[in-house]
Design a protein around this nucleic acid. Structure first.
Length: 580
RNA sequence: UGGGGUGUAGCCAAGUGGUAAGGCACAAGGUUUUGAUCCUUGCAUGCGUUGGUUCGAAUCCAGCCACCCCAGCCA
């Protein structure tokens, strides 16, 4: 084994930062609250694509389980078939796998607990803790009261157990229309917590479900389903976001009013009831990022109205979009780790995400040269068909990444922005009569500027200093280094430059009436006729590069063809020059 | 005007009665054939605010202020 095997290129080394959930779990372990078990779950509703906010939750749940030698389930919280689909189920599984996490056992579905859920509802009815209500949704809203006024009891609240049992069976049998009846918990219509004002447990929906088909006409609600699903799966720590804080009393009410033995009987736990401990819900602040739209409804709308090209548009905050943009799983995981977990609602600066991306790519992306906006340069003192094969390192600091051969010839291209006729102060690139280093090659001098009739610079005639390959020039200093590609050998490519989708720091702010007004018109620009050095295509398995001095780019696997490669710019290099 | 939460630097965030970790950003140097990377240094007499308790308070107590969430048969 080489030493380098222990030098992880993955910077996850170092202990995870403290946070209140980690601390709580450590305490629970110390007090043996869950018999030494840590079992979490990631419970998405399959009603859209996962975004970076979900990644925070995924990382939290999976990492906590992993750190404590526990388990993390993947459970689709699929209680509302009207909004869900198999497409989303598949995309979510794919995203989680891509991030590098493996869920415990088989994928779970809340819908696979529908039978148990129904039985537990019967149990609540028999205990007189649930009743069938005939109030319409509109009436129910009136009866609920307001934030400051108590609600009123439903006229059906005191119906007999038998009457409720009968009606609930008929609800299940499909005898009633949507909204005609609902099953409600009997708690307290005067509770200051509105979630406790006899919440709906089941509603009638004559609609088929992506997992259960047409088996059911009634579907349980989130509040009723989630706690029981957690209990069935033996979850110890049920983590969710802050807006569910007010639901916690209901979560606990349902579980505590169900017979513990019957819960244990249908649970995954093989051990005795004595080891069966109810799950604990804990809330944390969801991730917010400036300049980023995270609302599922808006994201969906942008996809459907063509504001972006799809859920995987590289400008989207979705995991699919970030993947196509060239963000790496390791970078996203480090980012999620670095933002921490707390209960304060904060907005993370994009620069933190960008830092994580650059950090990973700098270490792992091989270097290659690509000229985005070509300007022809003729090296006049080189022979007409003469080609030199220059050897260059794939990475400036990591020799294990090997070397590559770069063809060098009389006609090359450099980037238009690397030549200035009237340079600003401090300009280190090529000027008329000046010298510059061609990266990995020779120092050249610009002898002649060839312009078209309208004054545009068309070509530069330069001469190389033949003594400067691998050597400093004699008697002078050349500060600038620019990248280049042989005009004959370079591979033409199309390059897509991405920038933020929104110009406003908080696209979801209420004083932005229409998000179309804050769309960044320059979020995408396409460059044609870019020239990439041929070695970028030598190994088809490598699809992510640093184009030296430009940034990190990845091959767009979907749109590239054999004849026209397309690269997406993942992110620019840090640039302390153009900033000042 | 009900209930539940949150306030530590420009942005995240640790801290749980012993005198303000870390990261990002920013600034200044150094190295460099990427204006990148890397390295060094700087960056809160201050923890929303006003009082109180204490030898000692970001941490305990009281008041006040600001912001967030809740009135779906959505999750």
């Amino acid at each position: 084994m080489k030493d380098s095997d222990t030098d992880s290129k993955d910077s996850s080394a170092g202990s995870a930062p403290a946070n209140f959930i980690r601390n709580m779990i450590a305490q629970d372990l110390a007090s043996n609250k869950h018999r030494g078990r840590v079992h979490t779950r990631f419970p998405p509703e399959p009603n859209g694509y996962l975004h970076i906010g979900h990644a925070k939750s995924i990382c939290l749940n999976f990492s906590l389980a992993e750190e404590n030698k526990g388990f993390c389930n993947l459970r689709f919280d699929d209680t509302n078939p009207a909004k869900e689909s198999q497409e989303y189920v598949d995309a979510i599984k794919d995203n989680i796998t891509w991030l590098g996490f493996r869920w415990n056992g088989d994928v779970r579905y809340s819908s696979s607990y529908f039978d148990h859920l129904y039985d537990f509802a019967l149990q609540l009815i028999k205990k007189s803790l649930a009743y069938v209500c005939s109030l319409s949704p509109e009436e129910a809203r009136e009866y609920r009261g307001t934030l400051t006024e108590p609600g009123r009891n439903s006229p059906d609240r005191d119906r007999s157990v038998q009457g409720n049992l009968d009606l609930f069976a008929r609800m299940r049998a499909g005898e009633f229309a949507d909204g005609e009846y609902s099953l409600r918990a009997k708690i307290d219509m005067a509770s200051p917590n509105i979630n406790m004002r006899d919440p709906v447990l089941y509603r009638i929906r004559h609609i088929s479900h992506h997992q259960t088909g047409d088996t059911w006409r009634i579907y349980p609600t989130y509040d009723y389903t989630h706690c029981i699903s957690d209990a069935i799966e033996n979850i110890t720590h049920s983590l969710c976001t802050l807006e569910f804080e007010d639901h916690r009393p209901l979560y606990d009410w349902i579980l505590h009013n169900l017979d513990n033995g019957s819960l244990h009987a249908v649970s995954d736990l093989k051990e005795s009831v004595a080891d069966y401990v109810l799950p604990q819900q804990t809330e944390f602040a969801k991730l917010r990022l400036n300049y980023t739209m995270m609302g599922k409804r808006k994201l969906k709308e942008m996809v459907e109205t063509g504001v972006v090209e799809g859920w995987d548009d590289p400008r989207m905050p979705t995991l699919a979009g970030m993947r196509r943009r060239g963000f790496t799983p390791a970078a996203i995981r480090h980012f999620c780790e670095s933002v921490g977990v707390s209960r304060s609602e904060s907005v993370v600066d994009m620069s933190m995400l960008e830092h994580a991306i650059r950090e990973d790519l700098d270490r792992n992306a091989p270097r290659v040269m690509c000229v985005l906006n070509p300007l022809k340069v003729v090296l006049t003192n080189l022979g007409e068909g003469q080609v030199e094969h220059l050897e260059m390192a794939n990475h400036p600091k990591d020799e294990s990444m090997g070397k590559r051969i770069v063809p060098f010839a009389r006609e090359i291209v450099i980037d238009k922005s690397d030549f200035e006729e009237s340079p600003p102060p401090g300009f280190k690139r090529l000027i008329s009569g000046g010298e510059v280093r061609l990266r990995g090659a020779y120092v050249i001098r610009c002898d002649e500027v060839v312009k078209s009739s309208d004054g545009e610079v068309k070509q530069l005639n330069c001469s190389i200093d033949p003594d400067t390959l691998g050597n400093q020039p004699a008697g002078r200093k050349v500060k600038g280094v620019i990248h280049w590609v042989s005009a004959e050998h370079g591979i033409p490519a199309k390059i897509r430059l991405y920038d933020r989708l929104f110009n406003a720091e908080n696209p979801e702010s209420k004083d932005i009436a229409d998000y179309h007004e804050i769309l960044n018109p320059d979020s995408l620009s396409e460059l044609e006729g870019c020239l990439v050095e041929p070695s970028a295509f030598a190994n088809g398995a490598v699809t992510q590069f640093q184009f030296e001095r430009e940034g990190y780019f990845c091959v767009d696997e979907q749109d590239s063809t054999d004849t026209l490669p397309i690269f997406n710019r993942t992110i620019t290099l840090r640039d302390s020059w153009s900033n000042s």
